[in-house]
Design a protein around this nucleic acid. Sequence first.
RNA 1: GCCCGGGUGGCGGAACCGGUAGACGCUACGGACUUAAAAUCCGUUGUCCGAAAGGACGUGUGGGUUCGAGUCCCACCCCGGGCACCA
Length: 824
Amino acid sequence: MQCADEARRMDESYKPESVELEAREFWQENHTFEVDEDPGKDQFYCLTMFPYPSGHLHMGHVRVFTISDVIARYQRMQGRHVLQPMGWDAFGMPAENAAIKRGVPPAAWTYRNIEDMRGQFQRLGYGYDWRREITTCRPEYYRWEQWLFTKLFEKGLVYRKNSVVNWDPVDQTVLANEQVIDGRGWRSDALVERREIPQWFMKITAYADELLAGLDTLDGWPESVKSMQRNWIGRSEGIELRFDVADGDALGVFTTRPDTLMGVTYMAVAAEHPLAEKAAAGDPAIARFLQECKTMQAAEAAMETMEKKGMPLGMSAIHPITGDAVPLWVANFVLMSYGTGAVMAVPGHDHRDWEFASKHGLPIVQVIEPLDGASIDVREAAFVEHGRVINSGFIDGMTFAEAFAAIASRFEEQGRGRRTVNYRLRDWGVSRQRYWGTPIPIIYCDKCGAVPVPEDELPVVLPEDVKVTGVGSPLKDMPEFYEADCPTCGQAAHRETDTFDTFVESSWYFSRYASYDCNTAMLDERENYWMPVDQYTGGVEHAILHLLYARFFQRLMRDLGLSSADEPFTNLLTQGMVLKDGAKMSKNKGNTVDPQALIEKYGADTVRLFMMFAAPPEQALEWSDDGVQGAFRFLRRFWSAVHANAGTKSVAAIDTANLNDAERELRRKTHQTIEKVSDDIGRRYTFNTAIAACMELINAVNKLPDVSAQSVAVRREALDAVVLLLSPIVPHICHKLWQVLGHSSAPVNAPWPAVDESALQQDSIEIVLQVNGKLRGRLSVPADISRDALSALALADENVDRFVAGKEVRKVIVVPGRLVNVVV
RNA sequence: GCCCGGGUGGCGGAACCGGUAGACGCUACGGACUUAAAAUCCGUUGUCCGAAAGGACGUGUGGGUUCGAGUCCCACCCCGGGCACCA
């Protein structure tokens, strides 16, 4: 007897490892997640931002891939034909750093990491079509990227120009912003210098207006992301005008505030501006200042927070209206690469100009007054809002728009300026002076210049067996790589040794999953079946760069006839970070938790459940070991609740007319839960509240212990529902429990449960009673009660009466189905 | 500095359209079971006053709108993400 009990208990106890293996084998044997194009089916493309193969899975990965997998599995149960692929963003700096540290070539290190991580992903039960796996460092992938670049070259959408990099004078190498710490090289500790070198650019600005307008069509994107992109593109209407400089030079500037033109009291140019260099030639102090400006980081954040410095150049510009002399300064915060490298300064009506003027004792003049006539003093603070023009001669009294038009027309007549649109967005510099990246397919010929590598010579293959030292790219020491014949004239030439920014690979991989094995073109007609991505999920840190570049590439591919979609991602979900002790999990901080160890201890379902339960996906998630334990406990309760109710072979049909109150209430709860979970997973992506609702339902099942046939049937209905509702989140345990409940199908292939509206009906509802907005009582009333009857009942209530107590009732507010508020 | 978020019990969070603040879970405490421990189950758990009934206070800070504000408006403080070569 005891032995039999023991045996049954063993059988019924939850053992994640075997349960999860069984489910995984089922999916694998049935090729469950392998999908091909089927025009008769409603397709759904569910994609996660692919990972960099760092070698170890971290909690951030588990979180984002689980979110996406839950959505994919839910959509599948909705009857959609779901594609969920996976791949590797395999080029990047960490491989070079590992190579320097350990002497392993980046390629070998990367491939090894991919093997390790693929195994970990499979253990987590994600429903990927692994046949479509993409690895960006493989020539069969990047050859198409090289091909695209040569097409863009032909279309004039790429060009070469000088631009600024961080130069480490000791290591003789270019540093990434991340490698500059407090203005010094991370390895050499040398003061980093700004250096201009020729680099390739893609004309993203040619698409600025379209990228901006496209945001209005992205109803499935978070407003915050769209807003960040709008501000990043930074479209502004203004005028471009020319200030003459004393001895024949001219200074072009752009302004969005021509109405403040009479308030210009000085001009500032960048250190690299020709006028600054001209002044420096005759003045050692200016030359020293320009030299000082070179030891400055390229990052905008560093620039904006540094001390604003400047000095007069001893030259003047001529004000285009008054003809007055305006002093010319050089300033470290004006950048040669932004706009014209010069700004007109209006300290009375611009914060930064005001600060600089105050510091250097430059005059501050008021030329705008507030429309409401409020009194202001520009000596105290800049007034930056639009207003009415004053102290400005022919434009006095005008509004912003009137003054803008008047100034623009005058300059256009004089040929001194014109109306124009300016963008904050700059063209995308794609050259990197690094080895581990896609070779830029260009050959430099002394006679023919820069020549794209012809299609039949692609791919330009990156040699993988190299020694990385950290000083320059190994490609520069490999004549077998860089020696080439000019494709045009055939004479000896040399190959570009720079590689692409790794953002280039991630700007089109989503399309390639559809045409993953096509070796005759970048994309084929299958692209049209899957694209655009229905649901894209990834870190909010990619809100601007990656997502903007991908939107740009989508348009490039469209304009080359490779795709018909304007936008690559219809719906976007940005997930928050995983924190521990309030800080981002990172190796540096030593606060990481290894997902692998947890999976071994509790199983994949527990880890998935905790991740989805601890916080809604967009928020930061605080790690908690106790919370993981709690998730495991819940799965055990879930397991035993199902087993406790699975004994009866045949379950009676539910006779809805003959349920007692408790049974009817449990049924209502079952269908309320189906309704809520469908909305939480399908629309709101609030997986935490979906799980909470399922927990409540299981608690309610356990509280209905009656063994009558109808009670058994109602409990089974609830458990059938909850197994299906939780199956996208904890798919392995649900796969097993579905069998335990006597079903021969698998939840992954089952339809999503439907709500029985009649089960939701309620005869009486609870109404809250308030006096002056404070809760004073509750009332159970018929669901269809009239407003007047409700109002009368409320006033008659003794709790309400206690607080009304003879005072005059001024108003009674009735919110049907919710509350009555008596105002006295 | 600029752009975008966030701030609710001891903790993670819930409250979806301005209508019961604290669902669900964790922790802690009390109890049951056990020779014992673990596991499990039951109960309590925002703060203060009160024996209780009940009351007052309470969503970063200060103001405002409203019958009613965690939710809307204004100002401020703190924390996080991004700022173009980390991915």
